[in-house]
Every structure is written in structure tokens, then in C-alpha cells.
């Protein structure tokens, strides 16, 4: 969980810090409590294994962040099938084609960015509801996944196996999370893009009349999300040694849940990947804890639903207090 702890301070330093800290506080506290509980109950709670296991959810959640931040109901439901698409492209095209090395990572991220761009263009140029556009993309990508590989493809001995273990001295899961996170931080912190994205998400009309290319900023948000999601596909291969179309829908709803639990304001304009990571950590640790306690999976559903409602209520009431306070 060091991933969360390291990244949060970086966000705090930003101008919108006050609010960001406010929104992911709930999930962070929850994750910390769950971490302690897990450590207490599980003497062999290995950091490496846990990081590897949380990585796909963390990546899916992070990939959902830019589109939501771009505002106007922005959301990308196609993150999960895009992750699977990336893995399947590796298994069925890149590796047989001799591109199975590290070069696959940037290639697939590029593919993810292209798919995200298509989604973004449909939203921006087509002026269509993001939730429906990305649902349509969900169908299209799920179909493509099935076409690429109707049955699971086994891949063993690839460099991605490191994601499940260690890459050099570093836990593989951490690397997996760090790649999309680095992409995001690079683009949003080192360039003007992050600031513009927040402004567009906060008030697109003002941004538009102030000369901000609102459409381009939005499309790029979806493209970034796509590139981040592409990493997730390779991690899935690393964990399971197979690529299968069956995982297309696995992370769609849970990624949104993680982001919401992490307190990312769904109206856009604020927050960041810290919210996604905190939310993903909380959900994962909860699952893990309930597993240890041998609570049946069925209770998990209830607790997880209640938590989600609690988190959004907390966020809504906190936002209301902030408004009142001024």
C-alpha cells in the first residue's frame, strides 16, 4: 500500500489540494484500518503478492479518472474490455509477431490511446452522452476481444510474469501501478494539461470563452485513460499466464466503484489518481480481510454496496459543507 501513501502527498501539494485531500480521506482511512487489520490477522501478508493482486483493479480505477475529471458526465465504461483487448493483442498478435519484449508496452499503450481517442471524439465531436458512448464502446471492444481469441490463450515465460512477483528489487505490482501513474503524473504535473483538465471539468463554458481548447482537452482525457488501461492487460497476463476474452467485463463496475469510494467528484474538475488508488486499495483490502475471516462472498456484496453508498454520501455531504462554508 506504499503506492498510495507515496502518491498522496504529491497530490496534496497541488493547488486544489485542500479539496482532494478531503475527498480521498474517507477511503484512505478505511484502507489504513483494513491494512492494519489484515496485517494483524495474516502473519504472512506479503507485500509483493498483495500489490500484484491489487494492481489490475488499481489500474482500471486510475484509467477511469481522466474521463471523469473532464466533466459534463464524463465517464469511461470501456476501460475493462480495453484492458483485455490489450492483453489479447499481445497474446495473439505481438508475441507471435516477435514483438513480445518490453517494446510491447509502449505499442499497446499507443493502441489504448487510439481507442480512447475514438471514444473521446464520439463524445466531443458527436456531442453524445459519455455514459452511452462508452457503453457502446464496451460492446464493441468486448466483441473484438471475443473475435481475437474465442478461447483463452496461455502465455508462459514472458517478462510480464514479473508483475506477479518482483522486477529486480521492486515488487512487480508496484511497477505495474507505477507505469500508468507515471504517465498520468508526467502529463498532468509537468505540462499545463493537468491544470487545463481541471478547469475544463470545473466549468467548461468559462474555459471555452477564455480560449481553452475544451474539445481537445476532453479527447485527450479519454486517450490518456485508454493508454493507462492498456497496461492493465499485460498485468492480467502476468498474474494469470493467460489472456482471455472472459475478463472483458470484469473490471467495469468495480473500477467505477473504486473511484467513487475513493471520493473522486463525479461532476469532474477535481481529484486525481490518488482517489482511484485509495478506493481500489480499500476495496481490495476489504475483500482480502473478509476472505481471511472466512466471511462468505455473499456478505462481501452487501458490505461493499453499503460502503459505496456511505462513501458517496460522505462525499456529497462534505462537498455541501464546503459550499456552505464560504
Amino acid at each position: 500500500m506504499s503506492a498510495v501513501d507515496q502518491r498522496a502527498p504529491a497530490i496534496r501539494r497541488s493547488p486544489g489540494a485542500h479539496f482532494t485531500r478531503h475527498t480521498c480521506l474517507f477511503a484512505l482511512a478505511l484502507a489504513t484500518a483494513l491494512l492494519i487489520a489484515n496485517l494483524a490477522l495474516q502473519p504472512r501478508f506479503g507485500v509483493t503478492a498483495q500489490l500484484a493482486a491489487v494492481a489490475p483493479l488499481g489500474i482500471a480505477a486510475m484509467a477511469s479518472v481522466p474521463s471523469i475529471m473532464s466533466g459534463r458526465g464524463g465517464i469511461d465504461l470501456s476501460v475493462s474490455p480495453l484492458m483485455t483487448l490489450s492483453g489479447l493483442l499481445y497474446a495473439t498478435r505481438l508475441q507471435p509477431g516477435g514483438l513480445g519484449g518490453y517494446v510491447a508496452l509502449p505499442l499497446l499503450m499507443l493502441v489504448g490511446a487510439v481507442v480512447g481517442t475514438v471514444t473521446g471524439l464520439l463524445v466531443v465531436v458527436g456531442r453524445l452522452q459519455p455514459i452511452v458512448v462508452s457503453l457502446a464502446m464496451f460492446f464493441v471492444l468486448t466483441g473484438l476481444d471475443l473475435k481475437l481469441s474465442p478461447s483463452p490463450t496461455t502465455i508462459s515465460g514472458s517478462w510480464m510474469a514479473g508483475f506477479a512477483g518482483s522486477m529486480g528489487p521492486v515488487p512487480g505490482g508496484l511497477v505495474a501501478l507505477a507505469v500508468p501513474a507515471a504517465l498520468w503524473l508526467l502529463v498532468s504535473r509537468l505540462t499545463t494539461y493537468g491544470s487545463l483538465l481541471r478547469s475544463v471539468g470545473g466549468n467548461d463554458v468559462t474555459a471555452f470563452t477564455s480560449g481553452v481548447p475544451v474539445g481537445a482537452v476532453r479527447v485527450l482525457a479519454y486517450a490518456l485513460g485508454g493508454a493507462m488501461a492498456a497496461v492493465g492487460g499485460l498485468v492480467l497476463i502476468g498474474l494469470a499466464s493467460t489472456a482471455e476474452a472472459g475478463t472483458s467485463g470484469s473490471y467495469t463496475l468495480i473500477a467505477i466503484a473504486a473511484v467513487a469510494l475513493g471520493g473522486l467528484p463525479l461532476q469532474g474538475g477535481a481529484g486525481g489518481i490518488a482517489n482511484a488508488l485509495a478506493g481500489a486499495a480499500a476495496i481490495y483490502l476489504l475483500q482480502s480481510l473478509l476472505g481471511v475471516l472466512q466471511v462468505s462472498q455473499t456478505w462481501l456484496q452487501v458490505i461493499y454496496g453499503a460502503l459505496l453508498v456511505g462513501a458517496v454520501l460522505f462525499g456529497a455531504i462534505a462537498a455541501r459543507e464546503v459550499k456552505k462554508g464560504r
Binding site: G16, T191, Y193, R198, S210
Partner: peptide, 22 residues
């Protein structure tokens, strides 16, 4: 203006093109 940004951000809003060094 954009409510959730700072006064400073709002004053320079639109002065930057995207993806330029901060």
C-alpha cells in the same frame, strides 16, 4: 470563473496551451 480552481489559476486561465511545459 471556475469555482474549484484558485484565483491565480482563474486569472491565467486560457493563457496556456495544453501539453506545454508548466
Amino acid at each position: 470563473g471556475v469555482e474549484n480552481r484558485t484565483v491565480l489559476d482563474n486569472l491565467w486561465l486560457g493563457a496556456d496551451r495544453p501539453l506545454r511545459p508548466v
